[in-house]
Amino acid sequence: MITGILTGFGILLFAFVWQTSLDGINRKIVGRFQKRIGPKWYQQFRDIFKALSKTGVTHGWVFDFGVMMALGGIMATVMFLPVVGYSAFPGMDNFFIFVYLLAVGMLGMAMSSVGSGNPLAGIGVMRALTQMVGYEVPFMIVILGIIFGHNTSSLSELAAIQQASGIMTWNLVKMPIGTVVAYISLLGMLGKKPFETFIAPAEIASGPMVEYGGKQLGMLMIMHEFATFIEVTLFVTLFLGGATTLFGFIAKYFVVYILASLISNALARFKIDQVIKFYYKVPITLAIVQALMVVFLGWGV
């Protein structure tokens, strides 16, 4: 019990420190990408703590409560993640837990930002939920194929199955089409550039974040770091075979996240209707092809 709780807080601390540092490193890499020097690697920490040290305005209790619900929901989700074999609640890392718990945090943020009353926040939330409908369907088809093929939906068991004989049993090698689809969905989840429609700072003034300042903005930035950690860790566990060592985990995580960020900086932004049309044309077709291959031909099992 005590060790479980300590493990949970350890995972939380690791998630915050690692993802926030990586965001700083990422800003540095993007800076070099654009022929700039870029900020210090710990710039993201400074931004978060600065935001927490400012005063914040309130727009009523729904606004404040939603921020706490978002941060709390996301932190609870992180505690269920199995990271490098450590897990706060062993045996309870079913994939569907994450699907449901992630929604708590996201809905908290949606409630809070709509509670601010700003029309741009409403547009942003509407776009975020529409985009979620877009990427969830192909993503879930691929994941259900994996669960059908391996006969388990536990994340740690899926990781163990993939670790059986090195790189050849990773889902990346066995289901390459599904991996591509899941990566495109991951770009949508992270809000990276072709699917950045719901943030869009130049168009709808950063969408759901439009009315946040000071402490609430700091808490939402922490929430964003945790959400990114969950999404990238899910991808690493489901397709890159998880990791048995901390170094392996960090290396895989780094490659997945930095690649997403580089793609983001090379592309322009879709409109929301283009996002949905794209997701319902290309990735969903590929996802169905992958699922048919797994279910009827038994390839990649």
Partner: peptide, 21 residues
């Protein structure tokens, strides 16, 4: 942008008055 690169001082543009310093 890249000639003088304000971001190395930790500065960046923000979208709304609520977020800005």
């Amino acid at each position: 942008t890249s000639r003088y690169d304000m971001e190395r001082l930790g500065m960046g543009p923000m979208a709304t008055p609520r977020q800005a310093d």
